[in-house]
């Protein structure tokens, strides 16, 4: 991967969503912000690693879910988020 390949539309959407999350995290308290950033970053990186890049249906589902979660996080009454680790 010497030269940067052109990003597909769906990749751009994912990056825009990530940007949106990081922007929204800035508006929260510093400690919560760090936690939100680490949760969001882990989620995006985990999915980038585990999800097959041709699995468009699932990726589009994740994008929709992410957008909905971002809308909720944008609410100023929401101060932070928590995750539950499910044992596999």
């Amino acid at each position: 991967m010497a030269s940067r390949p052109k990003l597909s539309g769906i990749q751009k959407q994912a990056l825009a969503l990530y940007r949106g999350f990081l922007r929204t995290a800035r508006l929260k308290a510093p400690e919560e912000r760090r936690r939100i950033e680490s949760v969001v970053s882990a989620e995006f990186r985990g999915n980038a690693r585990d999800v097959d890049r041709r699995n468009f249906v699932y990726i589009e589902y994740l994008l929709r879910r992410g957008k909905r979660q971002l809308e909720q996080l944008r609410n100023p009454d929401v101060t932070g988020l928590a995750t539950l680790e499910a044992k596999k």
Partner: peptide, 29 residues
């Protein structure tokens, strides 16, 4: 990777007190 690039641009935005448009942010390499 592309996620790191997003993080870098966000960090730069904050350090310089600016706001980078979505379209120009993606052309930074």
């Amino acid at each position: 990777d592309s996620l790191d690039t997003v993080e870098i641009v966000m960090g730069l935005e904050e350090a310089f007190g600016i706001s980078v448009e979505e379209s120009s942010a993606q052309s930074i390499a």
